[in-house]
Design a protein around this nucleic acid. Structure first.
Length: 982
RNA sequence: GCCGAAGUGGCGGAAUGGCAGACGCGCCGGACUCAAAAUCCGGUCCAGGCAACUGGGUGUGGGUUCAAGUCCCACCUUCGGCACCA
């Protein structure tokens, strides 16, 4: 019985494609190129997850579709295989990460192949393969060999870096150090979260309350020598070139925000020497301070300089120690220590209330020579700008909050526009006072009383105009306004600058500062240089040597390996256990670490690269995956780049995509790639959640309704899972059927092992086949949306595929053969019209990546065909081609049953005839005042005048129009008639 | 707190400003069967009515328009991202 059996036909076609290399992509082709790329997976031990095939299916459908449209399609797959889990497994079991990784890759490859994707497997890459990471190391050397020329806005070879004469004269070591300081890959001491217990450095988000997220071990912040990449040099271009790519606006915005460009000025505040000097004299143990060194602040609002009432330094600011007066020393030091103990997260997220300490020192505001008290507070970050700010509490939320906390003066210098003033609570009170509707004094709060009495004083001066009264109150008592005004306005209290708009003021004051040598224009970025080294084993080793002297001490000189020495392969280790010291495990490979070159002794760099490294450039290696001479042949690069469509999860919106773009730009500057951006178009697939879950809670067997659970938490409650038919919808709440007073929680959750709601693709394929899995993943909803899984939905598309099968194949026959109802006849008018309509819908939907509606269109057409007694062969042939990108195994099987060709993969995509799309007769709705009142059967080509006449002549409409005046008739040809009556 | 996306039947979701709910799931009824499964046919937004039909309906409240799920304003909820960046 030739029933639809995916278990038989799917492996058969997969074998066919593999053996014939159906999807091998030629590098040379007369066809137009199309590079369609998936974000390659990290092959975890858990195996494929149904989230992976979502994007892979979408790209595969498009790849197959493009091939049929005559494109030379590049569609590759590979493995992002370095990573921590394999290493942790090695620590526990002693199994080499390579083994674990290989096993995981094999499993992932098996699972991906079982889904019938049309990848060119000859191009497979694996980031842990020395043939691959040789070139990752090589790109690192390119970064190492590049400095950024800010004048030409271009990365250039280090040999072209101009060396100042003063350096030159100090000899070659000085020159080398100067160059090292300019390279895109450089070393620096940076504070990291070190967890001795786990023997590793942790990312900020892995540290909670100063303890490791896993295990709760103490974490210390300590400076460590690290490799960094100077991505900040490229900040401006990473920002600007976003205009060159077709990405979702939301992702572009996230990247822009991450880069965080802000324009403003740096301003120097001189220290006031007087009182502190006196203090210094009083305590002989203290060294006198260099008071000629000013405090430099960064501000985006130099126009508010006259409103600066205090200054704040970050606790880590280098001047804190020197400026603090002896009287304040103890308090300040305690605060600094306390701040240092807090992790970055604690300092931001948890610190709702601002804290700070006065240093006792004052600085001089350059615009008005006012003495300004200097505080330290951890709401100012050492890592941004200059680590110091001028505080303008009247026009900055944070300063406003801090000033209120410590009762510091608030001086307004920017007058808000009238509408802002009019919306304020103060204006409301003024209004009431004016209207005489304000209640008696006894009910007034202190603030209201102040407003009322102050308003009275300026009432006549302002001519009774309420907004002007409010304005006067703002000038005198801006602290009465609950909201701090942070937008642009007109300057006042600002000496000769009064009356200027914010924009004018900024330009003028910046010029003035520059003239007086007190500051200059400055652009700052939030983006930090990229911390590129990890103290791990399972990563790419750095191709770098550190020179040591006779005593074994580093001289500070570093040397890059030559390309002939690449790849630098990881040494074998006995054990991968952490040493308890912040030293990378590679340090244990003593024979590997010690190297002699040209009579000099070196130690190898023992840090390894982060997981991002391999994924930063894999899309280039696919173009020339087996080349041992270069990372990618320039001709091939020119042929294929940029990537036409890149599909992957939104979790990579910032880091991966930003890092890749950065590397690509460096390669571009150095002439290795021809286009400044790697990914022309980007689409993010949404997350797939687990099946819908209905949960209620009980306490000692008694149901607890959801609102109560939300109020008091789940402490002491027992969660009970319910089935779909135990619950029902009541209003907009889901309640328990047996007790509708109990509201329950109904939602789909993220799939996770812990929750036990993970769907395994193997099981789905085993039960329904790969075509059903593919089709269901696409039918669930829009690609970009987050959507819950439903096994019943899989069954639905499985039934559809069965229906398609039975449309063609005679299930009652002994052999595979076509149904007798399939004949070589011309389709009837309606079938032909529907076929062309379906071709149009599927084609349009593929172009817009609306896979769900394309499938719906094919289902509709199938439903039509099922009802037909005779099925023209030509129609089925075309339909199978339409279906083939979605359900390729089934389509190939059916294709073979009525065509001689071996595969349909390169058949021409069906086209439609516009003329055949139109029906002869159409139904046109007739509305009266926008309400549907009747329907008209008319010829499709009816002209508007005739349509209007027909509508007015309709019996039903005529009856409804009885005694009414027709004001207007709107006729939308072929669409509707709307009669407007009085 | 800020930014972004989204709120449509019992569920997933469709609808260039023009008939809301395509398609699928589920459910109800029927055919086939000794029976069941599978399959096929019909029905299925809500309320009223035997029915033809009538009224209401796209998170809430306003507005624009001959016409609003769609456009504008305000708000509510959910999800995702960011987190004192001066």
């Amino acid at each position: 019985m030739p029933t639809y059996n995916p278990k038989v036909i799917e492996p058969r076609w997969q074998r066919f494609w593999e053996e014939r290399k159906t999807f091998r992509t030629p590098d040379l082709s007369a066809k137009a190129k199309y590079y369609i790329l998936d974000m390659f997976p990290y092959p975890s031990g858990a195996g494929l997850h149904v989230g992976h095939p979502e994007g892979y299916t979408a790209t595969d459908i498009l790849a197959r579709y493009r091939r049929m449209r005559g494109f030379n399609v590049l569609h590759p797959m590979g493995w992002d295989a370095f990573g921590l889990p394999a290493e942790q497994y090695a620590i526990q079991t002693g199994t080499h990460p390579r083994q674990t990784t290989q096993a995981n890759i094999n499993e992932f490859r098996r699972q991906i192949r079982m889904l019938g994707f049309s990848y060119d497997w000859d191009r497979e890459v694996d980031t842990t393969d020395p043939h691959y990471f040789k070139w990752t190391q090589w790109i690192f050397l390119v970064l190492f060999d590049t400095w950024y020329d800010h004048e030409q806005k271009c990365g250039r070879p280090i040999a072209e870096l101009p060396i100042p004469a003063a350096i030159e004269s100090q000899g070659s070591l000085a020159v080398q150090k100067y160059q090292d300081g300019k390279r895109l890959a450089y070393q620096a001491e940076v504070p990291v979260n070190w967890c001795p217990e786990l023997g590793t450095v942790l990312a900020n988000e892995e540290v909670i309350d100063g303890k490791s997220e896993r295990g709760g071990h103490p974490v210390v912040r300590m400076p460590l020598r690290q490799w960094l990449l100077r991505i900040t040099d490229y900040a401006e271009r990473l920002l600007d070139d976003l205009t060159l790519v077709d990405w979702p606006e939301s992702i572009k915005k996230m990247q822009r925000d991450w880069i965080g460009k802000s324009e403003g000025a740096e301003v120097d505040f001189a220290l006031r020497p007087d009182r502190s000097m006196a203090d210094v004299k009083l305590s002989p143990d203290l060294q006198p301070v260099a008071f000629n060194k000013p405090i430099r602040v960064f501000t985006t609002r130099p126009d508010t300089l006259f409103g600066a009432t205090y200054m704040v330094l970050a606790p880590e600011h280098p001047l804190v120690k020197t400026i603090t007066t002896p009287l304040k020393r103890e308090e300040v030091e305690a605060y600094v220590v306390q701040a240092a103990r807090k992790s970055d997260l604690e300092r931001t997220e948890l610190a709702k209330k601002k804290t700070g300490v006065f240093t006792g020192a004052y600085a001089i505001n350059p615009v008005n020579q006012e003495a300004t008290p200097i505080w330290i507070a951890d709401y100012v970050l050492a890592s941004y700008g200059t680590g110091a700010i001028m505080a303008v509490p009247a026009h900055d939320e944070r300063d406003f909050e801090f000033a209120q906390q410590y009762r510091l003066p608030i001086r307004p210098v920017v007058l808000p526009p009238a509408d802002w003033l009019a919306k304020s609570r103060v204006c409301e009170i003024v209004q009431k006072v004016g209207d005489g509707t304000y209640p008696g004094n006894e009910t007034l709060a202190e603030f209201e009383a102040t407003v009322v009495s102050q308003a009275a004083r300026v009432w006549t001066q302002a001519g009774g105009d309420r907004v002007r009264i409010t304005e006067r109150l703002y000038r005198m008592h801006c602290e009465l306004f609950a909201d701090c005004f942070v937008e642009e306005g007109i300057a006042f209290n600002s000496g000769s600058f009064d009356g200027l708009t914010t924009a004018e003021f900024k330009t003028k004051i910046t010029d003035w500062l520059e003239e007086k040598n007190n500051g200059q224009k400055k652009i700052n970025f939030k983006l930090r240089d990229w911390l590129f080294s990890r103290q791990r084993y399972w990563g790419e080793p750095f191709p770098i040597l550190h020179e040591i002297d006779e005593t074994g001490k580093p001289t500070g000189a570093i040397r890059a390996l030559s390309i002939e020495e690449l790849p630098l392969i990881l040494p074998e280790l006995e054990d991968y256990k952490p040493s308890g010291k912040p030293e990378p495990p590679l340090g244990k490979a003593s024979a590997w670490v010690r190297v002699t070159r040209d009579g000099k002794r070196y130690l190898r760099e023992t840090n390894t690269m982060p997981q991002w490294a391999g994924s930063c450039w894999y899309y280039l290696r696919y173009l020339d995956a087996k080349n041992d001479k270069t990372f990618c042949d320039p001709g091939k690069e020119k042929t294929w780049m940029p990537v036409d469509l890149y599909v992957g999860g939104a979790e990579h919106a910032v880091l991966h995509l930003l890092y890749s773009r950065f590397w690509h730009k460096v390669l571009f500057d150095r002439g290795y790639v021809h286009f400044p951006e790697p990914f022309k178009r980007l689409v993010n697939q949404g997350m797939i959640l687990g099946e819908m879950e209905y949960t209620t809670y009980t306490r000692q067997g008694a149901w607890i309704s959801l609102p109560e659970v939300e109020r008091s938490g789940t402490e002491g409650l027992e969660a009970v899972k319910l089935t779909e038919d135990q619950v029902e919808k009541k209003g907009d709440a889901i309640v328990l059927k047996e007790n509708p007073a109990i509201r329950i929680d109904a939602r789909a959750h993220k799939m996770s092992k812990a929750r036990g709601n993970v769907i395994n693709p193997d099981h789905v394929v085993d039960e329904y086949g790969a075509d059903s899995l593919r089709l269901y993943e696409m039918f669930m909803g829009p690609l970009e949306a987050t959507k819950p899984w439903s096994m019943r939905g899989v069954e639905g598309v499985y039934r559809f595929l069965n229906r398609v099968w039975r449309l063609v194949i005679d299930e009652r026959a002994e052999e595979m053969r076509l149904l007798d109802t399939i004949e070589d006849v011309k389709p009837d008018r309606e079938t032909e019209r529907l076929l062309h309509h379906t071709i149009k819908r599927v084609t349009d939907d593929l172009e817009s990546m609306s896979f769900n509606t394309a499938i719906a269109a094919m289902m509709e057409f199938t439903n039509h065909l099922t009802r037909q007694a005779v099925r023209p062969r030509s129609v089925l042939r075309t339909f199978v081609l339409l279906l083939s990108p979605f359900a390729p195994h089934l389509a190939e099987e059916l294709w073979r049953s009525f065509e001689n060709s071996e595969t349909l993969a390169f058949e021409a995509w069906p086209t439609y005839d516009e003329a055949l799309l139109k029906a002869d007769q159409i139904e046109v709705p007739v509305q009266i005042n926008g309400k549907l009142r009747g329907k008209l059967q008319v010829r499709a080509d009816i002209d508007p005048a005739a349509l209007e006449k027909a509508a007015l002549a309709d019996e039903k409409i005529k009856a409804l129009l009885e005694g009414k005046t027709v004001r207007k008739v709107i006729v939308v040809p072929g669409k509707l008639v709307n009669i407007v009556v009085a």
